[in-house]
Amino acid sequence: MWGLSMQKNLGIMGRVISCLTLVLLALDGNNRRNKKMSDEKKEKTAEKTTTGLSRRSFITGTVAGLVVGAAATYGATTLTGPTAPAKPAGVEPVSGKTINLKINGKPLSTWVNARWTLLELIRDTVGLVGTPEACYYGECGACTVLVSGKPMLACEIFAIETNGWDIATIEGLAKGDKLHPIQESFIKNTAFQCGVCAPGFIMSAKALLDKKSSPTEDEVREAVSGNLCRCGTYNVVTRAIMNVGK
C-alpha cells in the first residue's frame, strides 16, 4: 500500500499500485471513503489497472510547445478547444485525439493529450476552475463531477475516455444569477470554511437529491462519505443537505 506514495515519481508502477490499492480498499470495505465509488467507477479503475495506463506512461511522446492553458471558448453555444499541435521538425507528434462531449449541457469538441485527466481538461483547457485541483489521486472527492448524473472523480478519469460523455460541473448549477437550492442551503448553513471541498460536496449532494428529494441523515452521510473536509465541516454539510429548499 505504501508503494503508492511519491506516486508521480514512481512512474507507471506508482499509478498501477495506486489503482490497485483503490480497488482493494473499495472491495475490502475498510475504506469508507471509497464506498460511494460507483460500480462504473470501479470498472474504470480496474480497467486502468489491468491495462496499466498512466498519465505518464500512456504516451511517451512529447508536448512540444503546447501551452496547456490554451483555453477553449466557454460560454458560446459550441465550445471549441485547441486543435492538435502541428508537428515540429524532428520531434515525434503528440499523441492524443479529438473528442466530443458535453460539459454543463454545452457541446465541446476538443483535441486532448492522452495523458490529461478529465480534471485537467475541465480546468486547463475549458477553464472551469471551480472543480478543485486537490489530492489528485482519487482520495479526497473534491473534484467530484457528475457524469450522466452519477458522481465521479475527475482526477481519476482520462480525458481521452470521455468521448460522448455528458458532464456537469459546479459552474453548471446556477442559472444565471439564480443559485441552485443546494448552493443556497450551503450558504445559509455556512457549510464550508476554506471552501475548497464545497464543490465536491455539492455535486455529490446533487446526485443524491436528484434521486431522492428527502433523504435521511444516514443517506446524506453515505452519499458524501467520499468527500473529505479537513476543516471538519461535516455537521454543517449534513445540515445544509438535509435542509435544501427549506
Binding site: V129, G130, E171, L179, I187, G195, V196, A198, P199
Partner: peptide
C-alpha cells in the same frame, strides 16, 4: 459564500 458554492474563489 457565493464564491465558494459557485467555484469562483
Amino acid at each position: 459564500g457565493r464564491g465558494i458554492v459557485t467555484g469562483n474563489v
